[in-house]
Amino acid sequence: MEFVIITGMSGAGKSQAMKAMEDMGYYCMDNLPPTLLPKFAELCHQSKRNIDKVAVVVDIRGGIFFEDLFKGLEELNEEGIKYSILFLDALDQVLIKRYKELRRPHPLNPKGGILNGILEERKLLEEVKKKADFVIDTSKLTIGMLKEEIYKIFFEGLELRKLTISIVSFGFKHGMLLDADLVFDVRFIPNPYYVPELKDFTGEDEDVKRYVFHWDQTNIFMDKLMDMLEFLIPYYIKEGKTQLIIGIGCTGGKHRSVAIANEIEKRLKENEHRAIVSHRDYKLA
C-alpha cells in the first residue's frame, strides 16, 4: 500500500493537493489527527475495498494532536507501514496575500496579525519539513501546475521526483534570503535601473532581459553556474536532499536577479529537473 502524508504551511495548497491525489485514484482523508495515522493505515490495509493508495492531510488544524505526529510516524515504522511525506510551502508574502484575498484569519492567530501566525507555524513545522520526502513551493503555481508537480512526483520516474529546485530572486537592500542553500550575487552585471527607459520595468520584461544578457559576463556566468549545478545536483540527491533553494540577489531584486532566476529555471527544466522560480522583492524595488 502506498501511504502519503500531506502537510505543510496553512494556505500553501494542501486541500488542492488532496483533491489532485483523489483525482489520481488515492483514497483521501482530510485533517486526520496524527495519533490515528497507524490505525487509519491498518484499516485501509484490511479493507475489503482493496485500497492500495492512500493520502491523508495532517496539519496544525489538529491543534495539540499535531504534536503527536512524530509518535504516529514512529508507530507506522514499527508496524512496517511504508509512507512518504509531501510538504507544501510558499513565500510569506504569498501566504499573506492568499489569506487577505479569502478574508480568513490564520488558524494559529485568529485574532492577531497573519504574519505572526505564519512565523509561528514555520517554527512548529521546521522539523517536519526536514523529514519530508518531497517539498513543493506553491508560490507561483496555479492549481493545474500543482497537480502536474504532484503527478511528476508520484507517477513519473524516480529521478524526477527526488529533488525540487527552487530559484528565488531577491534584493540585498531588502535583506538576505535566509533559507537559501546557495546564494549568488549578480550585482557585477550592469544595472538596468540606471537606463531611463528600463528603470520602471522588471526582469520579466523582454527589454530588460535583453539588456541583462547583452553582456559577456552574464552569459559566461550562466554557463559556469549551470555547469556547477549539474555537477552538484546528483550529489544532493545522493545525500537524500529533497529541496534545493538557490538565491539570486541584486540590489533591489527587480531587474538582474529576476532575469537570471527565470533563465536558470528555464535551463533546469530543459535538463528535466523539477524547478520552480519565485521573485521575492521585484514588486518592492
Results as ranks from 00 to 15, higher is better:
Phe170Glu: 00
Tyr151Met: 05
Val183Lys: 09
Arg187Val: 10
Glu148Phe: 08
Lys147Thr: 11
Phe65Asp: 11
Asp89Asn: 15
Glu230Val: 09
Gly203Ala: 05
Gln243Cys: 13
Lys241Glu: 05
Met222Cys: 03
Met176Tyr: 14
Ser257Glu: 01
Leu119Gly: 03
Val56Pro: 01
Glu204Asp: 15
Arg256Tyr: 00
Ile220Leu: 05
Ile237Tyr: 01
Thr242Cys: 08
Leu36Asp: 14
Ala12Gly: 09
Tyr235Lys: 15
Asp200Ile: 00
Pro107Thr: 12
Lys266Met: 06
Asp205Tyr: 02
Lys53Gly: 09
Val94Lys: 10
Met226Lys: 06
Leu108Thr: 08
Cys44Ser: 10
Asp133Phe: 12
Thr251Lys: 01
Ile233Thr: 07
Val54Lys: 02
Thr202Val: 05
Arg187Trp: 06
Asp137Leu: 01
Lys111Thr: 14
Glu22Met: 09
Ile233Ser: 05
Glu79Cys: 09
Lys241Gly: 03
Glu159Met: 12
His174Met: 07
Asp30Thr: 13
Arg274Phe: 03
Tyr27Arg: 09
Leu108His: 06
Thr138Lys: 03
Lys241Ser: 04
Val212Phe: 01
Leu158Phe: 03
Val128Phe: 10
Asp137Gln: 00
Ser166Met: 04
Asn31Tyr: 13
Ile245Met: 05
Val212Gly: 00
Arg161Asn: 08
Ser169Cys: 11
His106Arg: 11
Lys254Asp: 01
Thr218Ile: 06
Ile245Gly: 00
Asn77Gln: 15
Ser15Val: 04
Tyr235Ser: 13
His255Ile: 00
Leu76Ala: 14
Lys111Phe: 12
Lys48Arg: 11
Met1Lys: 13
Met1Phe: 14
Leu182Arg: 03
Leu115Gln: 12
Pro107Glu: 14
Lys199Thr: 05
Lys173Trp: 07
Met18Asn: 03
Val128Lys: 07
Phe65Trp: 08
Asn109Thr: 10
Ala285Ser: 14
Ile118Val: 12
Tyr26Asn: 04
Leu284Trp: 10
Met145Cys: 00
